[in-house]
Design a binder for these strands. Structure first.
Lengths: 225, 225
DNA sequence: GCGCGGCTTCACGCGCCCTTTACATTCGGT
DNA sequence: ACCGAATGTAAAGGGCGCGTGAAGCCGCGC
């Protein structure tokens, strides 16, 4: 069961959204403003947050940043009243994963929620084990023969995705969509640099290797030797 | 790798569709309206088209007809905002192979895309299997008796096309139109060089062989020994 | 303040791929 | 068997993708 925070100041709107989400099989945590939202955040583990931009006490941008600080991986769906491009930009810059424009179509909201959850659902498995190597996405650690060490966030995320699809090609675009987020404007060459550092770190690991597929991307090859 | 045209004017919707398709292993060509779609069409070979009915500049019906005129076999998946029967009628009459009603369920879209691609005879897996040899166009790999290796792009594309029409003659012109693109000015002798390299690489493969048809082109012969 | 680690960008260079070209070889017709 | 055309073969050159090192930026902790 997924638990969803609904931060929306309009009581009527909030009730409708919560009702719809509950009907869709989700657990809901309503909050009338940013302060309440933070309270909810402290009390229970959330799987997704829906935040209105315009709220009293603490607006959506602040809230998103606070949420991000608390849980970097939490999928956040922003709701904005204006459809101006600037707002979308701001929302994404603040750390939102997706956004919707008011008035809200509940069906559309359902789809976006589903899509976001599915995206992190790929990562719902928190542990990957390959030979003598273990990855744990809870604390971004790599354990080889009992020797545990923490990887930088992006490098870990990259390795985790590669190992989630062993033997399968992943393009830079796919990797970036998943690790950096779909609406990220970082150059694709950045992936290369992270891969290089990963390879350095994995020098002693023989359970698998990261293979370059020229012109396409990267692939993780499991050595069953 | 299958290439899919996504003609949809709503930028967010388009991004979501493209992101989902890319995660599913497809290459995407986004287009914001009919005009852009035709531009994409002129530039690269497409395997499937997803078209929204309601678009500025050129609506979906016109676009579908234009697509059909260019490529009769291209599978077209229409997206309509209204669920009225009349619209479905029109969509099919215009030449669509399938349709979806908004709001779009991405999983459903994935299923329809896969089904359409399979229906036009290309396996959605994009695999060719001949005896103990397997070709996977996802990552340009050739697997012989479990030993996987990646081929250079052109060589793979050539081999893939040859094996797509086993026993059938393919002229250099046909091969180049498919692999290099219709409007390519590379000398035809280049094909010969690639064929030579392919033959070297396929030295240990006994499942098939590339035969020269003097004055015409090449043909792939499957040895069912 | 300073240092440090993580992320991103950039420049450089190697090496793979592609293409061209030249030469050798084979094939078909006479 | 000879000749011309088509194809096989080898090598060279250029383009470009990718690896690599370094520098800059930012946030964080000392």
């Amino acid at each position: 069961m997924f638990r969803i925070l609904v931060a929306e100041d309009d009581a009527n709107q909030r009730r409708m959204m919560c009702a719809f989400l509950r009907l869709s099989g989700y657990e809901t945590c309503p909050a009338a403003d940013g302060a309440q939202a933070l309270q909810v955040l402290a009390e229970c583990k959330l799987d997704l947050a829906i935040c209105d931009i315009m709220m009293p006490n603490m607006d959506g941008y602040e809230l998103v940043e606070a949420l991000r600080q608390y849980d970097r991986a939490l999928p956040i769906l922003m709701v904005t009243a204006k459809s101006e491009f600037g707002d979308k930009q701001l929302a994404f810059r603040a750390g939102a994963d997706d956004y919707m424009v008011k008035p809200i179509d509940l069906d559309e909201m359902g789809l976006r929620v589903k899509a976001l959850l599915r995206r992190v659902g790929i990562q719902s498995e928190h542990r990957i084990e390959v030979g003598r190597t273990v990855l744990s996405s809870r604390d971004w650690t790599l354990t080889v023969d009992g020797a545990k060490r923490t990887l930088p966030r992006k490098e870990f995320a990259l390795l985790f995705m590669l190992l989630s699809y062993p033997g399968q090609l992943l393009t830079r675009r796919q990797l970036m969509d998943e690790v950096w987020g779909v609406s990220c404007e970082t150059g694709e060459r950045t992936v290369d640099v992270h891969i290089k550092r990963l390879r350095e770190r994995l020098a002693g690991v023989t359970d698998f290797s990261i293979v370059t597929v020229r012109g396409l991307g990267y692939r993780c090859e499991v050595d069953n030797a």
